[in-house]
Amino acid sequence: MKLRTGIAALFLLALFSAAAQEKPDALKLYRQGRELEAKNRMADAVVIYNEAIEVCKQDLVVNPRNMDAYTIYGWALVRMEKYSEAVTICQEALKITSDHRVVETLGEAYFYLKDYKESLKNMERYIDAAPRGERISTAYFFVGEIYRLNRSFNRAEIAYTAAVYLEPAMSLWWYRLATVRENVGDREGAATAYQRALRLRPDYKEASDGLKRVTV
């Protein structure tokens, strides 16, 4: 009798383990979506992002304080350009606790909604909370974008410089740095930044045109 009970328990444990292994992983789905997006398969990526969101919703039913689920939920919404929904989800999450990943996502969502004041506030909050965070270089880039759009070129130059220092392989970021340096009259610094952009992307026409302007 004990043997049968033991076998039954092992069988149930195996079933539960298999079910756990089969459960979709929201982060894996999100990363699959990013891979599809990188291949210009946005329609397919949206399908996967929506699957990731559904998993997040299920996870939040089980644990309403699951910040990983809130984080991935917000990321997926931003990738699908559902910025207002992303703001709502991030605000709900931040009522529970101040998770720096959610703060940065909220900053991005506000940026694309052109609410630059709220975007800047959240990006600076992220930078203060997570100076070595995974999205720190991106946060500095967005800060640079906000200051550039507000024509605060000196502040934008500082933010872009931090962004390219942390992640030097982004041609757009070097181009943006070059443009603000050009705007403040730093032709030599602008030329260096334009050259770095062209080194990463030789067909970057805007960078090539900029380089010609500052080296004539």
Rank of each mutant, 00 (worst) to 15 (best):
L94K: 09
L94G: 09
L94S: 08
L94Q: 10
L94I: 02
K95H: 01
K95Y: 00
I96C: 11
I96M: 11
T97M: 07
T97L: 07
D99C: 05
D99I: 00
D99E: 08
H100C: 00
R101P: 06
R101Q: 07
R101W: 05
V102T: 03
V102G: 06
V102C: 03
V103Y: 06
V103G: 10
V103S: 08
E104C: 11
T105K: 00
T105V: 08
L106V: 06
L106Y: 02
G107I: 03
G107D: 00
A109S: 14
A109M: 07
A109I: 04
A109F: 06
Y110D: 12
Y110L: 07
F111T: 10
F111M: 07
F111P: 14
F111W: 10
Y112F: 13
Y112H: 12
Y112W: 14
L113W: 00
L113S: 06
K114A: 12
K114E: 14
K114I: 01
K117Q: 12
E118A: 07
E118R: 03
S119W: 00
K121W: 06
K121S: 08
N122Q: 07
N122D: 08
M123D: 00
E124W: 04
E124G: 01
E124N: 13
R125D: 03
R125T: 03
I127Q: 12
D128A: 14
A129H: 04
A129I: 09
A129F: 07
A130T: 05
A130Q: 09
P131H: 14
P131Y: 14
R132E: 12
R132V: 09
E134M: 01
R135F: 12
I136S: 11
I136G: 09
I136C: 13
S137D: 14
S137C: 01
T138C: 01
T138V: 04
A139V: 04
A139Y: 01
A139Q: 06
F141T: 15
F141I: 13
F141R: 15
F141Y: 15
F142A: 12
F142V: 12
V143M: 13
V143I: 13
V143P: 13
G144V: 11
G144L: 02
E145Y: 05
E145N: 14
E145L: 14
Y147V: 01
Y147P: 05
R148N: 13
R148E: 14
L149P: 03
N150T: 12
N150P: 03
N150G: 10
N150A: 15
R151W: 06
R151D: 03
R151P: 02
S152D: 15
S152R: 15
S152T: 08
F153G: 05
N154R: 12
N154V: 11
E157A: 15
E157S: 15
E157W: 08
I158S: 05
Y160R: 01
Y160D: 06
T161M: 05
T161G: 13
A162C: 08
A163V: 05
V164P: 04
Y165E: 12
Y165V: 01
L166F: 10
L166Q: 11
E167S: 10
E167H: 05
E167F: 05
A169K: 14
A169P: 04
M170H: 04
S171L: 00
S171I: 00
L172W: 00
W173V: 13
W173L: 11
W174R: 08
W174T: 12
Y175S: 12
R176K: 15
R176A: 14
R176V: 08
L177A: 00
L177S: 03
L177V: 03
A178M: 00
T179N: 04
V180I: 06
V180G: 08
